[in-house]
Design a protein around this nucleic acid. Structure first.
Length: 581
RNA sequence: GCGCCCGUAGCUCAGCAGGAUAGAGCAACUGACUUCUAAUCAGUAGGUCGGGGGUUCGAAUCCUCCCGGGCGCGCCA
């Protein structure tokens, strides 16, 4: 595994600092990072400002002291002390050229790290109710979850991708009843308009047909409850099949599907609640009505509550309805308990915007049920506003003109959908413009990035006329002479590329894959800029007929650039394109 | 009423665990196509980081109050 340039220098700095009398854990407080302004140098550290008090010096004094020692490190060319006590380091050219070698040797595994140290982490995402096809709203969570998993795997976590099937509860009764109508329809009856409250979508038509094939007319003689028992397994398996197809279109995969009904049937819910009861965290109580929005039919009713307030929640939360049956929260507790029992102490849930109010209670329950050993991070995906050329696409569930995941993927393609869905922080709403997503311009980030990759590949096609193909292999290139890289644009691109491990690291530890998207956009910009310099000055082109050594150095840089872009797109689950014509 | 999230250029948004003169893209304006793909590039212009207070060497970032928007708040999941 390649050392990140920044952590390499930081390690050197830390070992120098160990010669001072500093308090435990000082490493975590100091940073070595690229300065905002390139003219300040390659790397800056705040160490002198942060730690000067401990050594009883003023920051500039301490910085001066550290400077003397840092200057002896090979790879550091010069050091300036600036502002309140920043230590700005400029690294030698050969230090950076070595990074180019690293990238070529590591290939797309450049940026991999052992941050996760093979710890198990469980990521639950999508978890759309099995009552219909997936729509736009689900897509964002699906992509975020999938990409986050890729990212965590890249930094060394042992990732399990999980889907929770909400196949119990009243929405499934409604589903069964809706399917029953379609069954009657399949038998030739006129069912008229689907009554409100039932699922109107025609995706249930094949389910009606299947029920007819399986049961003939026998369902008609059963009462509502017993026919529902017959219908549910059929409709649920067909719905899950449909969802799996939708996910497949997006290229989203899961390792484990957990059924809520099975948790209920297996006694897992009872066992989880027993754990809470033994800790004295359950009681019978009466909830206050929500202020300012008191339901008309509100009346006080005692129900079983979980003391989530002991874990920082605002009110205690019901786990049983007033009739004694479980709320959805109860099996959810069981589910997270089950994850803990399977050895997961790190869990991530990706939920939709309407679950915002749910975060504290499920985190509380996870802590309670695991004796505070497991932690749960919840990422809430805000809404996606679907647009077409700047105009919102009108959707109405009732009218049945919901835009489905399938519609979108068929329209713009899976790779485009995937990239667009993670170009924003998940906790802000996202405008997804179908027209813009297909545009071939800088306004469309995925196009811009892909185009940069294609350009790199294009030069290599031409290079085959100058070199034999073995000489252009990554390992062969990595052994070339890179001294010919000398202008600022080239070296700046190289420096930017060697930031990649930092970017991956920070995106992974913050669970924020969108950072990668912005970084890739920047890399693409740097590449396009470098490219265009060759138009004004033929000596700045990548391929120079009369200087094969320099050409090879430039090809190496170009190759590194395409490696980084490919590596980033790989995390997004997107195939880099090699040609655009 | 309470909780969570958001508020940064005309528009859409970045801003990494507080760091230096707050950055991109679009739109606007100026310039560059006999090319390794101009599907692009270079440049100009545009901001009291919603507002007030606080914490400190230093705040868009942390705390607090207020304003504006979104989501949610027992028998839907």
């Amino acid at each position: 595994m390649m050392r990140c340039a920044f952590s390499f220098i930081k390690d050197q700095l830390v070992s120098i600092l160990k010669g001072y009398d500093l308090s435990e854990g000082f490493e975590g407080r100091i940073t070595v990072e690229p300065p905002k302004d390139l003219s300040h140098g390659d790397m800056a550290t705040n160490a002198a400002m942060v730690l000067c008090k401990q050594v009883g010096q003023n920051p500039r004094q301490f910085a001066e002291d550290l400077k003397q020692k840092l200057e002896k490190i090979s790879g550091i060319e010069s050091i300036d002390i600036a502002g309140p006590g920043f230590i700005n380091m400029r690294l030698t050219k050969s230090f950076w050229l070595d990074r180019l070698r690293d990238i070529l040797q590591a290939g797309t595994s450049y940026g991999d790290s052992d941050q996760g140290a093979s710890h198990k982490v469980n990521v639950e995402y999508v978890s759309a109710n099995p009552t219909g096809p997936m729509h736009v709203g689900h897509t964002r969570g699906a992509v975020l979850g999938d990409v986050l998993c890729n990212l965590l795997a890249k930094v060394g976590y042992d990732v399990t991708r999980e889907y929770y099937i909400n196949d119990a509860g009243s929405q499934i009764d409604v589903l069964a009843e809706s399917a029953y109508l379609r069954y009657l329809e399949a038998l030739g009856e006129d069912i008229g308009e689907i009554p409100s409250g039932l699922y109107p979508g025609d995706y249930l038509v094949p389910v009606g047909q299947k029920l007819k094939d399986e049961f003939n007319i026998s369902l008609k003689s059963l009462d509502k409850a017993s026919r529902a028992e017959k219908i549910k397994p059929v409709v649920l398996s067909m719905m899950m099949e449909m969802i799996r197809c939708d996910l497949d279109l997006l290229g989203v995969v899961h390792d484990v599907f957990t059924s809520e009904q099975e948790l209920r049937d297996s006694g897992a819910v009872d066992r989880a609640l027993k754990v809470l009861e033994d800790k004295d965290l359950l009681y019978i109580g009466v909830l206050e009505p929500p202020k300012g929005k008191k339901p008309d039919d509100w009346e006080e009713r005692p129900q079983t509550l979980f003391k989530s307030t002991e874990f920082g929640d605002d009110v205690d939360r019901p786990i049983k309805k007033s009739d004694g049956s479980w709320t959805y929260f109860a099996p959810d507790i069981a589910y997270h308990y089950d994850k803990f029992a399977r050895g997961f102490t790190s869990m991530i849930d990706i939920l939709g915007a309407d679950h915002g109010g749910y975060v504290k209670r499920i985190q509380s329950a996870t802590r309670a049920v695991s004796d505070d050993k497991a932690s749960l991070d919840v990422q809430i995906c805000q809404l996606v506003n679907l647009m077409e050329g700047g105009v919102p696409v009108k959707m109405s569930k009732r009218a049945g003109n919901i835009v489905t995941l399938k519609d979108i993927v068929e329209k713009v393609g899976k790779d485009v959908v995937r990239f667009m869905m993670v170009t924003r922080k998940n906790d802000t709403t996202l405008d997804f413009d179908l027209k813009k997503a297909l545009e071939q311009s800088k306004d469309n980030p995925i196009f811009y990035v892909q185009y940069a990759h294609a350009r790199c590949c294009s030069v290599f096609q031409h290079a085959l006329e100058m070199f034999d193909s073995e000489g252009l292999e990554d390992l062969a290139l990595s052994e070339s002479d890179f001294e010919g890289l000398e202008n600022d644009a080239e070296l700046n691109l190289l420096k930017m590329l060697s930031h990649w491990p930092r970017v991956v690291d920070s995106a992974a530890s913050h669970h924020e894959p969108h950072r990668l998207a912005y970084y890739l956009f920047d890399v693409a910009g740097a590449l396009h800029g470098l490219w265009s310099m060759g138009r004004d000055d033929a000596n700045l082109r990548f391929l120079l007929e009369d200087d094969l050594v320099k050409t090879k150095a430039r090809l190496a840089l170009l190759r590194a650039c395409s490696i980084i872009i490919a590596s980033g797109l790989h995390v997004f689950g997107i195939k880099p394109v090699e040609e655009m014509r």
